[in-house]
Amino acid sequence: MRLSLDEVRHVARLGRLAMTDQQCEAMRDQLDSILAHFEALQELDTDDVEPTSHSLDMANVYRDDEPAPSFDRDRILANAPKRDDECFRVPLIMEED
């Protein structure tokens, strides 16, 4: 196994996912096979290959600093699970520790 159950739980926690032990085990197996797949790439010799950060061979795609009208507030708030006239509403965030 390339991944421990604790690592899976840690990743789940970072993503704020509540997972049962059973789900963690299933996820470990799936992630493990993905990692195994990527290991195949390690066998290639890439010493002479320049690292890239993007699949497109492009650079410098910009826009000018010109503001444009924004969206109507009601449309932006339309799909919010909870809202008031002006803002999104979310449960109060408590610092863990």
């Binding site: 932006i76 909870k82 008031d84 002006e86 803002c87 999104f88 509403r89 979310v90 449960p91 109060l92 965030i93």
Partner: peptide, 13 residues
């Protein structure tokens, strides 16, 4: 984030 009196926060983006 603006904290309200209750147990909710309001968000202005």
């Amino acid at each position: 984030l603006y904290h309200t009196a209750g147990n909710e926060s309001r968000i202005d983006f």
